[in-house]
Simulated assay, not measured.
Amino acid sequence: MHLLFVADPIDTFVIYKDTTFAMMREAQARGHRISVCEPADMRWVAHSQCGQQLVTAAVRDITLASDKPQWYSAGERREVALRDFDAVLMRKDPPFDAEFFYATHLLSQAEREGARVFNKPASLRDQPEKLSILEFPQFITPTLVTRRAADIRAFHAEHQDIILKPLDGMGGMGIFRVKADGLNLGSIIETLNAGGQNSVMVQKFLPEISAGDKRVLIIGGEPVPFCLARIPQGSEVRGNLAAGGKGVAQPLSDTDRETARAIGQALAPRGLLLIGLDIIGTRVTEINVTSPTGFQEITNQTGCDVAALFVQALERAVQSAA
């Protein structure tokens, strides 16, 4: 297969932990060709004279090498229609901003022209990472989504210990905990809510965070046997690795496996080949579909080759779509 990865600039990859790099390495090992581009490299233009309209991208073909720091060699940029690839993998990291949204529309157009895109762009738009949990209330902690400061205060009065976070955050950015004393609640509301301009997610605090915020990966609707528990360090309430959390791989519990399978079976048919659940205790707090991570940490600590599981699932998905 010839695979196109739409991603952040590859020179920014931290290859010892980057999941997209792990995908590329496994794909190359299995004999697949790799090309890369950034969302800004995609375009669509209507040629009135020839009548051809295609989503194309200025791509580079790359070959991975073992040398560091130059871990790849790349060819010259060339313009290629996305439909000419066997699969297009959308691996642009959040935030899910306007440009990400527009990129998914270009990818949807490419699908109409015959491209096979994973994860499906329409589902990337329809499954925002914070709000997707609302579809599965049986698996979540008490949760509020609102633009009204009074709603947040009432939720705090009821639950006493709460977490507040912006809907467009990533890597733990903008997350606050407010305990029963309500210290700084007003200031936090003003910061996140901006006078009613921004929606905020508020959740009951889960003390099980001390044991880790578990990243549970789902590939092709089935949970990976191991998860990555991201454990807060020191006085930090956030387990995100970007916020200094320690990643510890561990087998899935029976409860987490059942939860992941139920959510995976619901979402995989929508074109979501790869999903990352965030679970604290037994409660799902987020459903990540843009560019879930954790492959290398799990593989390095357990020997479970997550990248191999993913590329095998990708091969099956492409074959079934052919």
Rank of each mutant, 00 (worst) to 15 (best):
N288M: 08
I163K: 01
P121W: 04
G234Q: 08
A98D: 11
Q49C: 12
V178M: 01
E135N: 10
L131Q: 11
L167Q: 00
W44R: 14
G171C: 06
G281N: 11
T285G: 03
A122P: 03
L144E: 12
L267V: 12
L274H: 10
E286H: 09
R116S: 06
L164Y: 00
M1F: 08
D126M: 13
L164R: 00
R43D: 14
F176Q: 00
Q160Y: 02
T143W: 07
K165Q: 02
V202N: 01
C227R: 02
E158N: 05
G247P: 06
E99H: 10
G31M: 09
L192W: 00
G303I: 11
C304N: 12
N300H: 14
I163L: 15
T191E: 03
R116F: 15
V284D: 00
I34W: 02
Q49E: 15
G245A: 09
I218C: 07
I152C: 03
K165F: 00
L144G: 10
G212H: 07
V284P: 00
R116V: 11
T141V: 15
R147Q: 06
F13M: 11
G264K: 03
K68L: 13
S291W: 05
G245T: 05
K120T: 09
L267K: 08
A65C: 13
V224P: 00
G245L: 05
A262S: 12
L54N: 07
E26W: 06
E99S: 14
F139Q: 03
A307S: 13
G172Q: 00
I152L: 08
P223H: 13
E286T: 09
I279Y: 01
G244P: 12
R78N: 11
P142A: 06
L89F: 12
M173E: 10
P121F: 05
Q319R: 13
E26C: 15
N184H: 14
S73D: 09
Q301G: 11
A317C: 08
A242Q: 10
C37H: 03
R153V: 14
Q312K: 14
H159Q: 07
I162D: 00
Q197V: 11
H2D: 13
F139L: 05
F118S: 02
S123R: 07
M1Y: 05
F85M: 08
R148P: 01
D161N: 14
A40E: 15
L134N: 10
I231V: 15
E222I: 07
L4A: 05
D84A: 10
Q312W: 05
R177D: 04
I219N: 01
G182R: 01
D278H: 08
Q301R: 13
R116P: 02
A98M: 15
A110H: 04
Q296M: 09
F100Y: 15
D161I: 11
N184G: 08
G244M: 12
L252N: 04
G239K: 04
D168S: 15
G271Y: 07
E135Y: 13
L314I: 07
G271C: 11
F96A: 04
L217T: 04
G294N: 01
D93K: 03
S66M: 06
S199H: 11
V6L: 09
L64P: 02
R215K: 09
M90P: 02
F226Q: 02
K130P: 09
Q250S: 10
G245K: 02
